[in-house]
């Protein structure tokens, strides 16, 4: 059976059907991500002073992933022109680059997630001060100010530990290595600190994990890894980036299918094959667009 309007233009829409279908789908996608982004905006602007966590994401890594994704968008657009020119081998090379970029993006994202899962925040019943523990200097500029929560690594905690799981293991104290360098200071402050350390002769610049501070489990009010339940911020971060990563995965599957198993269509109906790349490309550029907004909104603002 012949499917109509796979290549020929429909008079009433002025387009082939696949393109109309994809744009309708993208319209629904705009609504899906629009809802999540506006929820983020409401929560971010509605948060009371000092309640929104700052600087918990790795900006250089996020920027790198942005570059990877826009590169893949460019190669998809170019690969479509290659098919238009009848140059299948150029198309194939460009699409292999696209797929490599997409897989790299997902790999970096997975690494970023796993980094988050073994960083912890401990909220204390009895606050500490930087006067008592100099390694907390980055948590507060005032030495005598009470520090009610500490961010860092916990010895032997692994990922996803909770206060309940520590109590179940019968632990009475945990040792936390404050790592405010990555998570409490803004990127600007990190840059200033690095500069100061280099000026000071800078052996410290390579190591930011501090000497451990023993904390009584009875002094812990709450303990959470950087997982969705840590805060509204992380809940939004994992929802948005997780949904986006699923879209990237979907794009990988579609492009790989068109590139390999479905490539015989190029011989049978090259115009239709070219259109399938244009339409899948539309989806891919949309996924790129979502990241163009998600990166500054989640990582920088």
């Amino acid at each position: 059976m012949k499917i109509p309007y796979t290549t020929e233009i429909r008079e009433d829409t002025g387009l082939y059907n696949g393109k109309v279908g994809m744009w309708l789908f993208l319209a629904s996608e705009v609504m899906l991500f629009g809802a999540l982004f506006s929820a983020y905006v409401l929560l971010r602007i509605g948060a009371r002073e000092g309640e929104w966590p700052h600087g918990l994401l790795n900006i250089p890594i996020g920027a790198f992933n942005t570059l990877v994704l826009i590169t893949s968008s460019m190669t998809v657009a170019m690969s479509w022109t290659a098919l238009k020119m009848g140059n299948f081998s150029l198309y194939r090379k460009l699409q292999v680059v696209t797929l490599a970029c997409a897989v790299l993006f997902l790999g970096v994202k997975a690494w970023e997630y796993s980094e988050k899962f073994h960083h912890y925040e401990i909220w204390l019943n009895e606050p500490l001060t930087a006067q008592e523990y100099p390694q907390l200097a980055g948590h507060s500029t005032d030495l005598n100010a009470p520090i009610t929560s500490i961010i860092g690594h916990i010895d032997d905690a692994g990922s996803f530990a909770t206060l309940a799981s520590l109590q179940e293991q019968g632990k009475s104290t945990v040792e936390i290595h404050p790592d405010e360098f990555h998570y409490r200071l803004s990127a600007r402050e990190q840059g200033q600190r690095r500069k100061a350390e280099r000026a000071a002769g800078g052996a410290a610049a390579t190591s930011h994990a501090q000497a451990g501070i023993p904390i009584d489990v009875s002094n812990i009010a709450r303990l959470s890894a950087f997982v969705p339940k840590h805060s509204t911020f992380f809940a939004m971060y994992f929802t948005l980036t997780g949904l986006h990563a699923l879209h990237v995965l979907g794009g990988v599957l579609a492009f790989a299918y068109i590139l390999w198993p479905a490539s015989k269509m190029w011989r049978q109906d090259p115009e239709r094959y070219t259109n399938s790349i244009e339409v899948t490309g539309l989806f891919w550029h949309f996924v790129d667009l979502v990241w163009i907004f998600a990166f500054p909104v989640l990582y920088l603002l």
Binding site: K84, M85, G86, S89, R92, S263, K264, W266, R267, E271
Partner: peptide, 12 residues
């Protein structure tokens, strides 16, 4: 070798 040969089906 459909997928591997440089195809000439589209001649722009």
């Amino acid at each position: 070798s459909v997928a591997t040969s440089k195809s000439a089906v589209i001649s722009p």
